[in-house]
Design a protein around this nucleic acid. Structure first.
Lengths: 345, 345
DNA sequence: GTTAGCACTCACCTCTAGAGAGTGCTAATA
DNA sequence: TATTAGCACTCTCTAGAGGTGAGTGCTAAC
């Protein structure tokens, strides 16, 4: 079903007009506001066609048209023109990285704030997930007879450490042999794979020292080594209240209930994290309560390992072009900066 | 200015009626609903008196009365009856502590959620602030020639550790002497006191090794040792939307803007943290944007050291009695549990 | 001191009418 | 055949009018 150039032009104008005004767009508005060399009647006919084809909708008889889900999708995929960033936007984004990079979570949190400020929508940013990294090596430093320091390094350069209690009847020699064994066994595995089933397997092979292995793995699992609680930071939640389509408190309530649920947010961001930049429109979102929204997500990486996701959520009538540009730029800078700092030092 | 018993009774009924209904309360409502042995006309006179005294207000001529700020204050201080917890509430609260206590932040976060569920308002919970604890001892374990593990223990039982780089020209002996010195110097100081000015002082005394001292302190300061980012967890922000007094979107917007600002929240909780349980009503709150709200806060401790605050924010027409009971109970349990786990093991 | 009665006030609901924006359709036009 | 002008029609939105009900203040009687 190919649209004529003129239909595309009309569709584009209707959608971008609607994105600006949040009001149904009439044929006269288009005719008056843009010099297409066409009368409102002609545009009216085109709009009626576009409605038949499913790209536009009429909220009620003889109102103006608003874009349908299909219309937005077509707009995002084929019509929309990607803008450049303004100097002001570039400056804001740059400021994210003026932190000392020590505290990566601060950078992430700041990114969420900037993202919401620039877009005027709500931002979601998921901190780096160590689970996605791969185990590189484990080092052990005995501190005294009872305690040892375990240091884990991942291939993305994260270093995590933890003090563990040693079982009594273990010689230093044995300890190092076990660590050696674990290093061989775990090398290259992604962190979220290192779980109970693996413990069992290692038990089989190392049956005579299983107590220690199990204890070690348990400790590691429970500890912050494998489980940094990768929080999701929200920015600009109050921005939702500015959107005219959400002047109904009940709609807002539904959305806030979702935003409050960390598990919901993970689902949102996880679901979107396969591609590097993804636009999910309206009912394409899996969570029913927010199907009047659209979601734009992008992933950031260290080297070639994806480790986190950032996103913006707003009404389906979102300024896609602007948000895509900004989200893209921030993930790009984030990837670049993180890779510099962490990769293979 | 002593109120007669009857005035107190009327005032109490008006306020608790208003807390239930959110509608201005009329004299007939009181006369009909409660058997005071008085006619509505008499109650009307009493209410007029209470208005003159500043305890009640009239939104417009010939509407019912609503409590004033002063009225609420008097209610909370003198009239209100503290309820007991229902069995269901006790059960909910108990569930907070069914976590393995390892992850204290999870407990805190869960507490925020339960608090908002039980009260139907928004909860704020500040995680344990290590800054409030006192330095107890520093231990150092050289790992190799370049690195050492520093472990800090506080008097509240927190253990924090960090790997630091050692300057080259330092013998093991010197290292231990320095640690020894620092232990003497820092012992008993609260963590948030250990700052730049102290570094300078130590420099003076230890001028010949100042590089190392400064570097160590810097490292400690920047690291998670002294600065766990004590996040504030919110629960039930969407509950605000259920309150009839906030059906106006602009009011909601103002409140959300405050709730979004972590610095604002700290101010709120810090300001309230002198007393063990504090009720701040309406304009008593320092932040202008939320002066239509009331705040109930309480602190929790380890041993006798206050380390965190939890709170509930809701409309001034809040169910004070219920919230106070719940907040009090949760902080009590929290203090008890934390003290058991952390104190002097 | 308390109460009954009454006039009065104000918010809120519903109903109506008119304005405005926009459409669909038809007939005329290039 | 594609475009346009014109017109009747539809629907929302707003403002105003009128009625209702809850509540008050005041006065006079108990």
């Amino acid at each position: 079903m190919n649209l004529s150039e003129r239909k595309k032009e009309v569709l584009q104008l209707v959608i971008s007009e609607y994105i600006k005004s949040a009001e149904p767009v009439g044929s006269r508005t288009i005719a008056r506001r843009y010099d297409l060399g066409l009368s409102s009647a002609t545009i009216r006919n085109e709009m009626a066609d576009l409605e038949d084809l499913g790209y536009l909708e009429q909220p009620y008889t003889s109102s103006g048209r608003i874009p349908s889900q299909k219309g937005y999708r077509f707009y995002v995929d084929s019509l929309m023109q990607i803008r450049d960033l303004s100097a002001k936007e570039v400056a804001w984004i740059q400021k994210i990285f003026n932190f000392k990079l020590k505290e990566i979570d601060q950078v992430i949190q700041h990114a969420a704030k900037v993202l919401s400020t620039l877009t005027h929508y709500t931002s979601l940013v998921m901190g780096p997930q160590i689970e996605k990294s791969c185990f590189e090596k484990l080092q052990i430093y005995p501190l005294d007879h009872e305690k040892a320091l375990v240091v884990m390094v991942t291939d993305t350069g994260f270093v995590e450490n933890k003090i563990i209690e040693l079982p009594h009847m273990l010689t230093t020699d044995e300890l190092f042999r076990i660590v050696d064994y674990m290093n061989k066994k775990l090398s290259g595995l992604s962190i979220d794979k290192i779980t109970g089933s693996l413990v069992k397997e290692m038990k089989m092979e190392l049956i005579h020292k299983m107590d220690f292995i199990e204890q070690t793995i348990n400790l590691l699992e429970q500890s912050s080594l494998f489980h940094r609680d990768s929080r999701i930071y929200l920015g600009g939640t109050a921005n939702i209240l500015n959107q005219p389509e959400f002047k109904d408190i009940n709609k807002i309530k539904k959305i806030f209930n979702v935003l409050e649920e960390e598990t919901m947010l993970s689902r949102l961001l996880e679901g979107a994290s396969t591609e590097s930049l993804k636009v999910t429109i309206g009912e394409e979102i899996e969570i029913e309560e927010i199907q009047e929204c659209s979601l734009i997500t992008a992933t950031y990486s260290i080297g070639d390992k994806t480790i986190g996701t950032i996103g913006v959520i707003g009404p389906t009538r979102m300024d896609y072009s602007k948000v895509i540009t900004i989200v893209g730029h921030i993930t790009h800078k984030l990837t670049q900066t993180l890779s510099e700092v962490y990769k293979k030092d």
